[in-house]
Computed example of a mutant assay.
Amino acid sequence: MRPQDLVACAARPRHPGGGNGRVDLEAGRAILEFIFLGILLLLPLTYLVLTAARLQAASFSASLAGREAGRAFVTAPSDDEGYARARAAALLAFSDFSFDDGAGVAVACDGSPCLRPDASVTSTATIEVQLPLVPDFLAVHLPASVTISSTHVASVDRFVAR
Rank of each mutant, 00 (worst) to 15 (best):
D80Y: 07
L50Q: 05
S98M: 04
P113V: 01
D24P: 01
T75D: 14
S59R: 00
S112D: 14
T46H: 08
G70A: 04
P44A: 11
A108W: 11
T51D: 03
L25M: 04
R67K: 02
V105G: 09
A62W: 02
A69F: 12
V105D: 13
V49R: 00
D101W: 01
G111C: 07
C109D: 09
A52K: 00
D24S: 02
L50T: 01
S59L: 00
V74H: 07
F99Q: 02
V105P: 09
L55D: 03
G28M: 03
F97Y: 10
P113K: 05
D24C: 00
G82A: 06
G111L: 15
L92G: 04
G104P: 15
P113Y: 10
A27R: 06
A52G: 03
R85P: 08
D100G: 06
L92K: 04
P113D: 12
P77D: 10
F60M: 02
G66N: 12
G111N: 14
R67D: 11
R85Q: 14
G102C: 05
S112P: 14
L45C: 07
A30D: 10
A72M: 09
L42W: 14
A53Q: 03
D79Q: 08
E81K: 15
A57R: 01
S95F: 01
S112C: 08
S98A: 15
A86E: 09
L40N: 06
G38H: 13
G38V: 04
L45A: 07
E81F: 10
I31K: 01
S59Y: 00
R85Y: 13
I31E: 07
A53C: 02
D100Y: 04
F73P: 15
L45G: 12
A62V: 00
F60D: 05
L43W: 11
V23T: 06
A58E: 06
R87Y: 11
Y83R: 09
R29D: 04
V105H: 08
L42Q: 13
G70P: 15
D79N: 10
F94V: 06
A58C: 01
S78W: 10
A106E: 12
L43H: 09
G111D: 10
T75P: 09
S98R: 15
F97K: 03
Y83M: 14
G102W: 05
L40P: 07
S112N: 13
C109Q: 14
L25E: 12
R85K: 08
G82P: 14
A72S: 14
L37R: 04
A93V: 07
D101S: 10
F99K: 01
A84H: 05
A76T: 09
V49D: 03
V49H: 03
L25P: 07
G28W: 05
G102E: 11
G38I: 13
D101Y: 00
V23A: 14
S59D: 00
I39W: 11
F99A: 02
A30K: 12
V23N: 09
L42T: 15
S98V: 10
P44D: 07
A103Q: 05
F60L: 03
S61Q: 07
S98E: 08
